[in-house]
């Protein structure tokens, strides 16, 4: 079986965000980019599934974006994926536009099981997997923390408020990975060397019309730092009074 994993290339979560001169995007200067943390769970689950299925299955990594996304694709190849595809696009797309590009490639690859991260930690949309699944006409389970595949039958647990939902569905299917699904492996030295030799296929991303116009990007209003009321338990009554009378939250 062909298994696809879609990965995004995002600013490190420790990055201080500076708004770019266009006022609509971030200033990329000095920003370190990494593989989207949730996509590591997606890659790991794909590799685990491949290992279980054995002979004849393959994992292909797909990313849409700039040349630099190859670093993230290579990271996934170093973990053990077989093949990488970069769908080249210079501009930031809205999620439907991203999904459109991914959909075309997944279809061309004939992948019946597709992993995404539950959320890309740049624009935090949390929907690219679901959008792509619907375009493909595949089943979809998002925010998955436990996955079992037997033949074409899928049992997945997804995280919801205050618990989990156990979902039954079948292939072809899109799964979006949440932390807790697995422990992503580290790339071995051998894997890193092998990944360097693998060719990343490159092609233009299928065009898409944008449905979202960004008017501006801004920093949130800074919260006024509050008061330190005291340094020991003698400050407790005053704190409780403030919460009750000033904040009115208790």
């Amino acid at each position: 079986m062909k298994i696809a994993v879609c990965v995004s290339h995002v600013p490190d979560t420790a990055t201080k965000i500076v708004i770019g001169s266009d006022g609509k995007s971030i200033d990329p200067n000095g920003v370190t980019y990494i593989i989207n943390p949730y996509d590591e769970f997606a890659v790991e689950e794909a590799l685990k599934t491949k290992e279980k299925l054995g002979e004849g299955s393959e994992v292909v990594i797909i990313s849409m974006g700039k040349e630099a996304n190859k670093e993230t694709i290579r990271k996934a190849l170093a973990m053990g994926a077989d093949q990488g595809v970069l769908l080249k696009e210079e501009v930031q797309r809205d999620p439907v536009g991203v999904a459109k590009a991914l959909y075309g490639e997944i279809k061309a690859q004939g992948a019946e099981l597709v992993f995404f991260g539950k959320q890309s930690v740049d624009f935090d949309n949390s929907i690219t997997g679901q959008l792509t699944a619907e375009m493909l006409g595949y089943n979809c389970v998002s925010v998955v923390v436990d996955l079992k595949i037997e033949g074409t039958k899928i049992t997945a647990e997804r995280e919801i408020e205050g618990g989990r939902e156990v979902v039954e569905t079948s292939l072809p299917c899109v799964i979006t990975a949440q932390k807790g699904l697995n422990e992503p492996r580290y790339a071995s030295l051998k894997g890193i060397m092998a990944a360097k030799k693998k060719v990343i296929e490159e092609k233009p991303a299928a065009p898409a019309q944008t449905a979202v116009e960004i008017i501006k990007m801004k920093k949130p209003a800074l919260k006024q730092p509050g008061r330190i009321i005291g340094t020991d338990k003698s400050a407790v009554p005053e704190l409780v009074r403030l919460l009750k009378e000033e904040a009115k939250v208790i």
Binding site: P11, T13, T15, K16, I17, I19, I26, V121, D122, F123, D124, Q209, T210, A211, V212, E213, I214, I215, K216, M217, K218, K219, P220
Partner: peptide, 16 residues
């Protein structure tokens, strides 16, 4: 809407 985990905000419109 917040982006980059709330480190920035985006004002946007849907054009479709």
């Amino acid at each position: 809407r917040p982006v980059f985990a709330g480190k920035a905000l985006v004002e946007a419109r849907i054009t479709s």
